[in-house]
């Protein structure tokens, strides 16, 4: 019982998870019959098949030909990019387009390994002005610029 392929094991577990979740949520929808399917019919079956596929994929981790490790996760970019995006989504409606996109550029750039203020500040200013001209002036998208408008 040696796990050779970590990627197979974990993707199997992921598919099983999604499959069970789909079955669980679909309990609330009328199932119907094969000839008159209800809204629950399709998702329940998809959930079942996906769970089975997940088990098969997870099981294949034992007999994989090569060792296959998942490897290190890039936690820093994952967190910083997510935070930048979430702030943008919240911010564009609450504090306006200019601060929201400026924050996204700076936080996003910080997700990289070569962050230099000397480069990022001009980049942020350039991008915000460019996007303002393009999206708000050019395409007339109705975004507020700042929190006061």
């Amino acid at each position: 019982m040696k796990i050779k392929s970590q990627t197979d094991l974990w993707s199997g577990i992921m598919f099983i998870g999604f499959g069970l979740l789909a079955i669980w949520i679909s309990r609330d929808y009328p199932f119907g019959t094969a000839s008159r399917m209800g809204p629950g019919f399709f998702p329940t079956w998809i959930g079942i098949i996906m769970t089975v596929l997940g088990v098969m994929i997870a099981a294949s981790c034992l007999k994989a030909e090569d060792e296959d490790k998942v490897g290190k996760w890039a936690w820093r970019p994952m967190i910083l990019m997510s935070v930048g995006f979430l702030l943008f989504g919240w911010g564009i409606d609450h504090v306006g387009f200019v601060p929201a996109s400026a924050a996204l550029v700076v936080i996003g750039a910080a997700a990289g390994t070569q962050f230099r203020w000397k480069e990022v500040i001009p980049l942020a200013i350039g991008l915000v002005i460019g996007c303002w001209a393009l999206f708000i002036k050019g395409l007339e998208l109705p975004f507020p610029l700042f929190w006061w408008r």
Partner: peptide, 28 residues
């Protein structure tokens, strides 16, 4: 290092412009 923050910004604005819905950004 300069290209990807720009792509991120264009992506965020593009996604938001579809429905003007912050939920879309969170789902992205």
């Amino acid at each position: 290092r300069l290209l990807f923050p720009a792509i991120l910004t264009f992506m965020a604005i593009g996604v938001y412009s579809v429905n003007n819905l912050d939920l879309d950004i969170y789902l992205t």
